Simulated scan of single mutants.
Amino acid sequence: MVTFAAADNHDGQPAVGEGAFVTLMVQAKDPDAYIEVMKQNTAPFEALGSAVAGVCVTKTGADYPGQMFVWNAFDSVEQAMAATDAYDPMNAPAELAAMREVKYNAIFKPLKPFKLAPGSERLWRLNIAPQNVMPFVGKMTELEAALRAAGHDMNVGVFQPLGGGAHETIHLRAVSPSYGESGKVIDEAFSGAAWMSIWGAAMALVDEVVTDNFERCQVIYTADS
């Protein structure tokens, strides 16, 4: 699986992840059917030059029925932005266009190393003052290490939106292999796990939790498959 790894860190600041993601937020009439059609037609992903592509379907706290998004992973912001020139989601093939309503698209830059291993994912959209973003990233890096040391197979990502308009804020994403594993982490949090002190310090840097959702994510295309 692709890992969006760390850039060298020379100044004591948290290492920023490499690569970027292009996301297309949609309302699908039938998410499963829409996903299956995309799996069977990989030409758009090939044309974009995606390293990996996938989907995330909102499972709790959806703003509307069929809430989901398609994501494409690239090795650089340059490649991600070039892809926005290569494909206009409003001019999709008729079969795809009939299956979903486009809400908006955005580009995201990972602010810490992030192992791309989709599964049960909790997504928070957070408002954080600019001067507190990288300290927050540092706390999330510390928290991820503590969770793994406690035996949890969890990946934590922090993502900066680029061109997200009024729709997007900082994304915090906590990824487990299953919803049961996600629930186990939450049970430990309510039981006063030692790593909760790191979470508390991180959340003290957050001005507002805008949304909080669970999603089910999966890879549907890889360039080397």
Rank of each mutant, 00 (worst) to 15 (best):
A194H: 03
A80W: 00
L116K: 00
M140P: 05
V2H: 07
M196R: 00
L96I: 13
I220C: 06
F114S: 05
L123K: 11
V209Y: 01
S50C: 12
G200H: 10
M203E: 10
A189S: 14
E208L: 07
V209P: 01
E208D: 11
F190C: 01
M90C: 06
A193K: 03
V210Y: 04
R148C: 00
V52E: 08
H171L: 15
A33E: 10
K115Y: 06
T169F: 14
P177W: 03
Q131L: 09
S178I: 01
A145P: 03
V206R: 01
V133R: 11
A86Q: 05
N132R: 09
W124K: 08
A94M: 12
V175L: 04
E181D: 13
V16Q: 14
L24A: 09
L123H: 12
R173N: 11
V37C: 02
G61I: 01
V206Q: 06
M203P: 00
G138M: 05
Q67T: 08
M140C: 08
E121K: 03
A193H: 04
L205G: 04
A80V: 02
A28T: 10
A145N: 11
A53E: 05
A86T: 07
G165P: 01
M68L: 14
A146C: 01
E18L: 13
M140K: 01
R125E: 12
D187E: 12
E78S: 08
E181G: 05
Y104Q: 04
G49A: 08
V133F: 07
N91P: 06
I170V: 15
N105E: 06
N105A: 07
P93F: 08
V185I: 15
D224W: 05
D88M: 02
S182Y: 08
T84I: 06
N91K: 14
A193C: 02
Y221P: 10
R216G: 11
P65Y: 09
A7Y: 11
A15G: 09
F136G: 08
L143K: 00
G180L: 07
G119S: 09
G54I: 06
A194D: 15
S176C: 04
T141Y: 00
P135T: 10
Y34A: 15
K39P: 01
M25K: 12
V55S: 02
T84K: 01
I35S: 04
L111H: 11
F21P: 01
E101R: 10
A33V: 09
I220G: 02
W124L: 13
V52R: 10
M25E: 08
A146Q: 07
L116V: 14
P113H: 07
N132E: 11
F74S: 08
R216P: 00
N91D: 09
M134D: 12
A189N: 01
R148W: 04
A98W: 05
A98Q: 13
A83M: 05
D85Q: 11
A129L: 12
M134H: 10
A106W: 04
A117T: 13
A129D: 14
G17K: 11
S50L: 02
A204F: 00
